[in-house]
């Protein structure tokens, strides 16, 4: 009987301990960090004479803003050389322009490794641009890993669209 009542007390203690945690219901989104808004920084740009910002020219190689990668790779494939060169040249001639390179991965494998893989892709593009004349200070990199897929689905057609670096001015 003594043992039993002791146990009851123990259990009671545990349970009351738990109650207090349960009282806490929801936590509001913390801190004033602006969330969600996609900030797009537009540079002043260089007058090309056409009156159109080359970034907005659909015929400019600068209109290509996404570089795609192979699985578990951060190597820039030859078909994207022109794109990288164009952006590097644009940055070199517009030193006030700042660009953000967003690295992404497909959903396969672990999230944290994909976060690192996305970073490596964005750094790969950054390094190439820097080699081609852009200043490293103009280029921000961020990796979202697999957290922001461009295409939904669990097949190669979706995955190939998600392994990417987005060039965001």
């Amino acid at each position: 009987m003594n043992v039993r009542s002791t146990l009851i007390i123990i259990f009671a203690a545990i349970l009351f301990g738990c109650t207090s945690t349960e009282e806490k219901k929801e936590v509001a989104v913390e801190e004033g960090a602006p969330a969600g808004e996609k900030t797009q920084a537009y540079g002043a740009g260089e007058d090309t004479g056409t009156g159109i910002n080359p970034l907005d020219d659909p015929n400019s190689p600068l209109s290509v803003r996404i570089i795609y990668f192979e699985y578990d790779s951060s190597e820039i494939r030859p078909q994207y050389r022109k794109t990288v060169e164009a952006h590097a040249a644009y940055l070199a001639s517009n030193p006030n322009v700042i660009v953000t390179l967003e690295g992404h991965a497909d959903e396969r494998g672990s999230r944290e490794y994909n976060l690192a893989l996305g970073e490596r892709r964005s750094l790969s593009v950054k390094n190439q641009m820097a080699l081609l004349g852009a200043s490293a200070g103009q280029i921000r990199t961020v990796s979202y890993g697999e957290e922001r897929p461009a295409a939904a689905g669990s097949d190669e057609s979706a995955w190939s669209q998600n392994r990417r670096v987005e060039i965001l001015y």
Binding site: K24, A33, R111, Y144, E147
Partner: peptide, 30 residues
């Protein structure tokens, strides 16, 4: 119970050994 909500990705929740805290990764600051 919701501890945090955000329009930006959250990942890698990790319990403290005493079960009182959780460490995690948030993209709320871009």
């Amino acid at each position: 119970q919701v501890l945090l909500q955000s329009s930006e990705p959250l990942l890698s929740p990790s319990w403290s050994p005493d079960g009182k805290k959780i460490a995690y990764v948030s993209f709320e600051s871009k």
